[in-house]
């Protein structure tokens, strides 16, 4: 970027890109801090206050939904990670036709439009008496996470050299021992990435949470969407809740960025 115009042009581009990414965030943050009067023309709110945050945090409905979201996300992460890791290990190592056919099936699952199952999944969950339970909702999420997780994880396993396993097999190790003892320690970065992916997929999910919850397990996305559809729009408070909802994401933000970069690419390219 030499020459007279290069540097200012790049600076301008960077500025515009940041404006694009940050304007809604900054504005919602301002509204979440606004006092009595909301701005009706370009400008800042008259008075700033933390009252809206206090209001949101002391609302039983809100902190329950936050807790529900976290519990369900943890559960969904556990189920999907523990079931997809062994499967993806097999998919990475097996040469069999059955395995590659199944792998394609999982790709099909992965690209499926969720909406097509909205009512049937409700019926199935009702049959297993899993509606409005933590397990039910997290299984609902898991169904969408497992296919993605398997494809990502397979990408990581493909990178683990096979020589180690071959010597272990000579020592008479079973696939289970191979997986836990030899391969997994080498694939830990992949596992972390997949767990994070699973956690955030579950934490952000809306449609299935809407369908599979009644009251006790209502998650944050469902609760927040309800505020807009209820025609009871209290912008200050729901902006504050929006800001609070980012905390788990922000806590892992740097991991999220680096693992997502790698993880997403493996999922795309290596699968």
């Amino acid at each position: 970027m030499k020459g007279g115009w290069g540097v200012p042009l790049v600076a301008l581009a960077i500025f515009l890109l940041l404006v694009w990414a940050l304007t809604p965030v900054v504005y919602a943050m301002l509204i979440s801090l606004a006092g009595f009067d909301l701005p009706t023309k370009l400008g800042l709110p008259n008075d700033l206050t933390f009252a809206n945050y206090l209001d949101a945090l002391t609302d039983r409905e809100v902190y329950r939904a936050m807790a529900n979201s976290l519990i369900i996300a943890v559960l969904a992460t556990a189920i999907s990670t523990f079931s997809s890791i062994p499967a993806s290990y097999v998919f990475s190592r097996s040469q069999s036709r059955v395995a590659s056919a199944l792998l394609l099936l999982f790709l099909f699952f992965r690209l499926f439009p969720w909406i097509a199952l909205a009512f049937p999944i409700f019926l199935v969950m009702a049959r297993f008496r899993l509606l409005d339970t933590y397990l039910g909702v997290s299984i609902g999420h898991t169904v969408w996470i497992i296919p993605t997780a398997i494809w990502y994880m397979k990408g990581f396993f493909d990178l683990v050299p096979k020589e180690l396993e071959e010597s272990a097999v000579l020592d008479g190790a079973t696939p289970f021992v191979l997986l836990t003892k030899v391969v997994l320690p080498l694939a830990i970065p992949g596992m972390v990435a997949v767990s994070l992916l699973a956690f955030f997929s579950s934490y952000t999910e809306y449609l299935y949470s809407l369908i599979l919850t009644r009251v006790h397990t209502v998650t944050l996305p469902v609760l927040m969407a309800g505020y807009l559809s209820e025609f009871k729009v209290e912008w200050r408070k729901i902006s504050a809740i929006s800001m609070l909802s980012t905390i788990p994401m922000l806590a892992f933000y740097s991991y999220l960025l680096s693992y997502m970069r790698r993880g997403l690419l493996y999922g795309v390219m290596k699968g």
Binding site: A21, S239, T246, L256
Partner: peptide, 19 residues
């Protein structure tokens, strides 16, 4: 900074933009 929108869940995104 540029990646910051990923920390919002879709419901928050809807609220941010509806606002």
């Amino acid at each position: 900074l540029f990646s910051l929108p990923i920390v919002f869940i879709p419901s928050s995104t809807a609220i941010l933009w509806a606002l």
